[in-house]
Design a protein around this nucleic acid. Structure first.
Lengths: 241, 241
DNA sequence: ATTGATTGGGCTAGTCTCAGACCATTGAGG
DNA sequence: CCTCAATGGTCTGAGACTAGCCCAATCAAT
């Protein structure tokens, strides 16, 4: 926490890896967050390369790697493309332990703290903002989508709900940061068995979050998100104890 | 806020620029945030290049650019190095308008919202954490440093105080995010004339933040940071109206 | 004055990445 | 059955970036 800590913070690596690695990471984020749902396809290579600001060659290497790993099914010709084949693996505590071991305990705490801070911050900001009728509708829509979700779609729609809160603030930076925070723990969340008790509990908390936001109560919104995320974190740690 | 918005969020450019540009940006961040104070020097090129994960050639190009722009004074030989010569320009509303025009109004709102969310989130998390005696000391030290600051050092120590809150949470991700958020508005903050009234007002708010954190009251911490940052944001917008 | 450690300055060969052009495959619509 | 638009597959030359090496300058210690 002294000045040298701040040096480490700011003078950290400029790049997380080479273009290929960063591209794989980004595509994996899109897939695992369900931004591109199973069965859907990525944008055409030319368009995607332009969006990501990389060359088609590099993009194709990344797509090839994900194809080899079983995340994508690439088809040629018109109406072809890179189709998402990935579905979250069946939860099991064994795989959870393995993933945490790979990640490292400090990194897990870091990721959970990070997510707690940015999601609480987003909810608080949104609750302090006067919302349009359209914004309220989006939020309620996400909530009802989640309530009617099948077990298959639950995680994806849960992600959509949480990310919508950040998106509705209108801050792109905040939205990308929340997406990043979520993706850092998404594998772990997917490994938690989904019990009906937990889902019901989560549903009540989601409702409380929406209520607080719509009521324009930042403190209540903060508390509701905090409670929800700490519940999830506790569940996670419970399977590790 | 529909699904296409989420596509834009996740499938954004992988890289903000080439290695040279990103390195210049990072060094500028270290200088403008005062992580390397005026008169101090950057780490030796070899060490710095290793930390940033780039080659010495690229680093030297970036340093050269900052030297040409008057941010650094580079001296050879033992006890040489790249010394920071930059000091924040004298505030003036004219330069502020120009900078905002360059930045774009939407980007300004984005940056301010982002900063509000992450700093409130950090303070809330820290207040919810049981602090060690050492952590309390660090926080109090930063506060007293700021209270005794000369006009010359005020901005730098104000930055140090705010960043310490995120650092004390122990989350590297949160610390880097807060540093990033601050650097996005630092030029604008530096352009605001510093009136004694505002400094006194800010001092009281800083004290309120520390009180809430030490008292372990997340809601109060959130409110205190929110009030403080919205005061600054209002001041900023005031000079633009 | 000499020496030695530390630091910036510069060169080269090799790898990564890119832009752009062209080829191959697919399938809907005429 | 043909055609054509959309899409993935491939190649090439140029530029960006890197690792590693050696040179040049500076200054405290001797």
């Amino acid at each position: 926490m002294d000045d040298s800590a701040r040096l480490m913070t700011v003078l950290r690596p400029v790049r997380a890896g080479n273009a290929f690695e960063e591209t794989v990471e980004r595509l994996l984020q899109a897939i695992k967050l369900g931004v591109v749902a199973p069965g859907e396809k990525l944008p055409p290579e030319r368009e995607l390369a332009a969006r990501l600001g990389i060359s088609r060659v590099t993009l194709r290497e990344a797509i090839r790697a994900l194809q080899d790993s079983g995340y994508l099914d690439v088809r040629r010709g018109r109406y072809g493309g890179a189709f998402v084949t990935y579905t979250p693996p069946r939860p099991g505590t064994g795989s959870l332990r393995r993933m945490v071991a790979e990640m490292g305990g400090d990194d897990l705490d870091d990721a959970l703290t990070f997510r707690l801070a940015v999601e609480c911050g987003a909810a608080q900001v949104l609750a302090a903002t006067p919302l349009t009728a359209e914004q309220r509708q989006v939020l309620l829509r996400r909530l009802s989508d989640l309530e009617q979700a099948t077990l298959e779609d639950y995680r994806r729609l849960d992600t959509a709900f949480h990310l919508s809160i950040a998106e509705l603030t209108g801050s792109t930076l905040l939205a990308t940061t929340c997406a990043d925070a979520r993706s850092r723990v998404s594998d772990l969340l997917n490994a938690i068995p989904m019990l009906q008790v937990n889902i019901d509990h989560a549903a009540a908390q989601h409702q409380a979050i929406v209520d607080a936001v719509l009521a324009g109560d930042p403190d209540a919104a903060r508390r509701a998100v905090c409670e929800h995320l700490e519940g999830t974190a506790a569940l996670l740690r419970g399977f590790l104890a």
